[in-house]
Write a protein that binds this DNA or RNA. Structure first.
Lengths: 133, 133, 133, 133
DNA sequence: GTGGTCTAGACCACG
DNA sequence: GTGGTCTAGACCACA
């Protein structure tokens, strides 16, 4: 059973939280190729959000090529495909790192402090992912 | 001479791109305390955006206390002040770290890889700082 | 129900009038943590200004950490946080006091009279706070 | 000899600083009715500002009725006239007090603290005025 | 329906 | 010349 946890009031839009959690579920093996996703309406009811929001998340997953829709039957995990090259993935992460280091430096943090904070967030995330298993 | 590069059609709004690039320039020492920023309308003409967009970016920099405006004279890099409490500064950095680690993990990077990338960006900033002295 | 009164043609810009009245409403308890603010376009229509002007005022309130925005849902009074250092908070209050005492002196008021007027406004705010509980 | 002290980099525009200091000089007797003011160009040279700025300040003083210009001879202190009623003067001060108390309350200051800060600024202003005599 | 961004262009304040 | 404010109106993102 796929469990999605929504944090309202976060900076991350709800549809994106859904997208990321489905992707994470696939990445960690909770969902395998061919497995069905919950129906839009069922998931919307379960996590208490507008069904448009769930539909949007699923649309995004399809666009990213990791989910397929079969007309009238529902949504299914697609065959895994590598979409981004290593260079592209590195670029995407660096785009987020650049503003972070500027901001941190201006706020008076040292490199070591920032690294410690990143590491902490990383372990926190890993921990919460394991809690979902 | 401060050069700002804008990518239109990006998911990052123009005014944020300006903010981040000015912040980076200050953080790495390309701009020092007291240095003038390009005038609102001059920069707007140079990067071909509306002057309100530049004004919005500069206003953001003022809120963060890193630049000052003087009516009729222009914008200048402000003296560094301790504006925010430790808790607030930590919160601000974590707000940027959270999406970073989550995105990096989805793209298949390990914690070590992310830490290495962050460290690299940090050193790059420090290095360009010394180059400007 | 929050009612905002705008004086056009004043030397105080419209967006600042909005900021100050929302701030006053929160300070005196007319708006409590979690309460929604009027929607940007609804308030703009009500006080007959451009919606950008209201948006600018609300953005200012966000910078000060006293309201939050949630995409697609609206603006809400934020939980109180200690954002600014003691020095910064003192600086901000003094920035408002300085023109006040200078103007009051030019208008012929003594220090005692000004203190009495400040105290009166303070009690008025506290009183209306209790009236709202 | 009238001495004007300009603080550049303040929130208060230069022309306003001139206006207020001339008004203060008249109020405290340093300038009497009929006394000449420094010429626009002389004062501009002395305090190192644009002569348009001085001209603007003098225009404001004329508008307020406390200075007169005699074509070709210069500017002179006019016969003192009461311009604002007591109610109007009180209103003007209260307009500045209201935002102050809201801001101070939201920043976590008590009424006593604010009163102390106002008193301090008042004495500081009086002290610096006496220093000019 | 909400908020967020951007443009074009106007008018005012300051130096 | 500089910055500051405001309008009218467009288009996008989110729920």
């Amino acid at each position: 059973m796929l469990s999605i946890q929504i944090t309202t009031g976060s900076d991350v839009p709800i549809f994106r939280q859904i997208v990321e959690q489905v992707r994470a579920a696939i990445a960690c093996g909770k969902l395998s190729v061919g497995d069905p996703l919950p129906s839009v309406r069922a998931l919307a009811a379960e996590i208490v959000v507008n069904h448009n929001t769930v539909a949007k998340a699923y649309a995004q997953l399809i666009r990213d090529g990791i989910v397929e829709s079969h007309q009238g039957r529902g949504y299914f995990v697609a065959e895994r495909r590598e979409i981004f090259t290593k260079a592209e993935r590195t670029r995407r992460v660096n785009v987020m790192i650049q503003p972070l280091v500027s901001e941190a430096a201006l706020l008076g943090f040292s490199g070591e402090e920032v690294l410690a904070m990143v590491e902490k967030q990383f372990s926190k995330m890993v921990a919460s992912n394991q809690g979902n298993r």
